[in-house]
């Protein structure tokens, strides 16, 4: 023992601690292949191929506007599949891209926007209660105003990690979380839970000439369920609001 210098153990201890810190840093670094910056529809397509879920499953979504208005759902057709009053409840295919048209909002008179929704994943509710658990897609007034001013707002709706979820409705808390310009909103949502929907809101509107069909989505199915289209001559007597716990990661792209 006397042949070894005393500081050898100290150096070895520091070196070991350094190695452990490097190993823990490596464990935290994980390559995330998806990004919200790839072309719209790509992530949903890839995730549908990886998951191999039932391609015919219809996931309910609930689209909310600041207060009132109409929501039209397009699916690879210039003619909307349905025009519903907000909040609009419909079922769509995971793995597909849909185009919406939101209009008739009293907060933004005369403004007509065409956001897109990319359905990444589905929920697994109890059998027979699928419609009780729609994915909430909340379009706030700030987002709509930013889009009308030429900005691209990207929101990622995710299902919160149960161990991280709070008891309050996250859509009514201080989030959505805004990520920096260069950050990957999808990766941040993956860190906080399970990404469900990418919502992109911009100011582009279809014109009569040269608007491609791909503008209107990738052709997934749309099921209205019990929802009644506007101007159908049927009055809806009850509109019981029900929210699913979900969070939102948002990035406004200048």
């Amino acid at each position: 023992m006397s042949l070894l210098p005393r500081h050898f153990f100290c150096s070895l201890t520091l070196l070991t601690a350094g190695l452990l810190s490097v190993s823990s840093a490596e464990a935290q670094q994980m390559y995330y292949p998806f990004s919200d910056r790839v072309p719209p529809g790509y992530t949903a397509e890839m995730m549908a191929r990886v998951r191999q879920d039932d391609p015919y499953y219809l996931q309910p979504i609930r689209i909310e506007l600041p207060s009132e208005g109409t929501v039209a759902i397009y699916s690879a057709n210039p003619e909307p599949s349905a025009v519903l009053a907000a909040p609009a409840l419909a079922s769509v295919n995971p793995g597909h891209l849909y185009r919406l048209r939101v209009a008739d909002m009293p907060e933004l008179p005369g403004v007509e926007l065409y956001p897109s929704i990319e359905i990444l994943d589905r929920l697994h509710p109890p059998v027979g209660r699928t419609l009780n658990y729609p994915i909430p897609i909340v379009l706030t007034k700030d987002d709509l105003e930013a889009a009308a001013n030429g900005q691209l707002v990207t929101r990622v709706v995710y299902l919160e990690e149960p161990q991280l979820a709070a008891t309050q409705d996250p859509l009514r808390r201080d989030i959505p979380i805004s990520v920096p310009q260069g950050a990957n909103a999808l990766e941040e949502a993956e860190r906080l839970g399970r990404p469900m929907v990418i919502v992109r809101i911009g100011g582009r509107t279809p014109t009569a000439m040269n608007t491609p069909i791909s503008f209107f989505g990738t052709g997934g199915a749309v099921d209205l369920g019990k929802s009644v289209p506007v101007n159908a001559g049927v009055a809806r007597l009850s509109n019981k609001p029900r929210q699913q716990a979900a969070g939102v990661v948002q990035r406004t792209q200048n």
Binding site: E45, A48, N93, G95, N210, S214
Partner: peptide
């Protein structure tokens, strides 16, 4: 698209990759 031995090519009926927008507004 994904390779045939890795992921199914026909994961969903009628599914198609969203092509690039052919026009700029």
């Amino acid at each position: 698209g994904p390779g045939p031995g890795v992921m199914g090519m026909l994961a969903q009926p009628g599914g198609m990759m969203a092509g690039p927008p052919m026009s700029t507004q």
